[in-house]
């Protein structure tokens, strides 16, 4: 594409971001500030994820972009097209084929490989932001590994509701050291981060922070010894492919309260259906 560098960003910017990424990988879970650039879309639309992807993309890479698990939402389509134009890279909807996966708020169901990179879009990188409004104070807490406040929040949940009420962006402890926001992925996905073979990179454009989890790193969701963290499976299978252990979206299909529960990961669902799996609603088309 004329007038633009490969993948939109100039080389100096990419170098700056790669330095931040190296530092982030060297200190798993630690937030590294970076000079977030002006991107052709506003804050809140994935500028951080896009800058990270732009900095790691090479001409031989195959890019997949998903938004809440789906390849076909407006934003996923726009971002995929953006990189197709500015980098000329091959794009795909198949998780298995991708070398770089940019995601908003979900981890694919398929276990990632050690030759893949997953880039998360992060709105609020500071896991303590809702409990402590002072950034100076949260930085101090991170540097001193002083996370009592987060455990107090979990205690309060247990005292008030009998269970921990966090259903997404569930805080994790990375490599036994840093408290990290996994981005607003459902708590269901937290388990996948633990000892993942792929490299996990996180970009927050508005807050100007980058962090990372290198492959094969311990990632533990915060809990209590007598109230351990549990992944809760849906109580029904996917209506299209019958999957019992995937994260499901609820889709309203008519004006009479009709609902369909389908895999949020569109590629996973498509793959299963191609292999012959069918759910109870298998004969109907999924709502666009």
């Amino acid at each position: 594409m004329k007038g633009y560098n490969f993948a939109y960003l100039d080389e100096q910017t990419k170098r700056m971001i790669r330095r931040a990424l190296l530092k982030a990988v060297a200190i798993p879970g630690h937030q590294v500030p970076f000079g977030s650039r002006e991107m052709p879309l506003p804050y809140g639309w994935g500028t951080g994820g896009i800058q990270v992807t732009a900095s790691v993309l090479g001409s031989n890479d195959v890019l997949k972009v998903i938004d809440q698990g789906a390849d076909d939402t407006t934003n996923a389509v726009s971002i995929r097209r953006f990189f197709a134009r500015t980098a000329g890279v091959r794009t795909t909807t198949r998780t298995a084929e991708a070398t770089v996966i940019q995601t908003r708020h979900r981890i694919p169901e398929k276990t990632l490989r050690d030759d893949q990179i997953i880039v998360y879009q992060v709105p609020q990188p500071e896991p303590l932001s809702r409990l402590e409004s002072s950034r100076i104070e949260t930085r101090r807490m991170h540097s001193l590994a002083d996370y009592g406040l987060m455990h107090v929040k979990l205690y309060e949940d247990l005292a008030r509701y009998g269970q921990i009420s966090i259903s997404y962006d569930y805080p994790v402890l990375v490599n036994h050291r840093y408290l990290m926001s996994p981005s607003p992925i459902p708590a269901f996905d937290n388990q996948k981060m633990h000892m993942m073979p792929a490299l996990q990179l996180f970009g927050a454009g508005r807050e100007k922070r980058i962090y990372a989890i290198p492959p094969w790193t311990e990632v533990r969701s915060l809990d209590f010894d007598d109230h351990p963290f549990r992944t809760i499976n849906a109580d029904r299978p996917c209506g299209l492919c019958g999957a019992r252990d995937a994260y499901l979206d609820e889709v309203v299909i008519d004006d009479h309260g009709g609902r369909l529960f389908v895999c949020s990961d569109t590629d996973h669902c498509a793959e299963r259906r191609e292999a012959g799996h069918r759910g109870d609603e298998g004969v109907r088309e999924a709502a666009e």
Binding site: D146, H151, V152, Y155, E156, L158, A159, F224, D225, D226
Partner: peptide
């Protein structure tokens, strides 16, 4: 004191800051 945290949470905080991880014991 943390005014938006329950009395029990306030008392338990120092224990949790020291690594206490058993909800029942803390309470």
């Amino acid at each position: 004191l943390r005014m938006n945290v329950s009395a029990g949470g306030n008392v338990g905080e120092r224990l949790m800051a020291q690594g206490a991880r058993h909800y029942g014991n803390i309470r």
